[in-house]
Amino acid sequence: MKTLFVSYRVTDLNRSLAFYTALGYAELGRVEAGDAGHLLLLSFPAEPAASLELVHRPTDGHVEVGTGFDHLAIQVDTLTDTLTHLTEAGLTPGPIQHPGGPDGPKTSWLTDPDGYRIELVEWPPGHADGITAADFS
């Protein structure tokens, strides 16, 4: 088994698409289902398949972010370059943090138009992509 993608309900599909496109996602395709909703599948250009789905159900109205969801984590190559790009695109990322100390990952936080939190992560040199069992040994 493997995770296919994360799916978010959004209030305004065009506003969310503009945000996630500025973040670096590209649209893969849409499913238009009328009053039942609209699905928009996105991925980063280097990803082989969809990694994010935006779900818009116009009849449901405004989306309230629930208390069970915490955040989406996105790996970036160079956090300072990413923050510069996002700021130039009109987004408002937070300051760089070092949650694991000076030799650990660098992070920054961003919030999408519906209030979903996004953690941007730059791993230190030599660290494998993502979190693996080696991080706990």
Results as ranks from 00 to 15, higher is better:
L39A: 06
P58Q: 12
V31D: 05
S43K: 15
P45I: 06
I74T: 00
G90Q: 04
E27L: 15
T84I: 03
A89Q: 13
D77H: 12
A33V: 03
G101L: 04
L91N: 05
L39K: 01
P48Q: 04
D81K: 07
D70C: 06
T107K: 03
Q97L: 15
I118C: 00
T80H: 11
P45Y: 09
A50S: 09
L72D: 01
G94Y: 11
Q97S: 12
D77Y: 05
P45Q: 11
P125D: 13
A49G: 04
E47N: 05
A89H: 12
H38V: 13
E119D: 06
L83H: 07
G100L: 10
L83C: 05
T67R: 13
G101T: 12
P113N: 08
G100F: 11
D81V: 01
A73H: 00
R117W: 02
P99R: 10
A73C: 13
P102L: 12
G94E: 10
Y116P: 01
L54T: 08
H62L: 09
G101Q: 11
G66P: 11
D35G: 08
P105K: 06
T92M: 00
S43I: 04
D81Y: 02
G34F: 11
V63T: 00
V55T: 14
E88D: 14
L52R: 04
R57H: 09
D103R: 12
D77P: 01
S108Q: 02
Q75D: 12
H56N: 12
D103P: 05
P48T: 10
E53A: 12
I96Y: 08
H71G: 02
D70G: 09
A46T: 15
Q75V: 01
G104A: 06
L28R: 15
T59W: 04
R57Y: 07
T78L: 06
T107P: 00
Q97T: 14
G37S: 08
E119K: 06
T82A: 14
V76M: 09
H98D: 01
D103N: 15
P105I: 10
T82I: 02
A50P: 11
S43N: 14
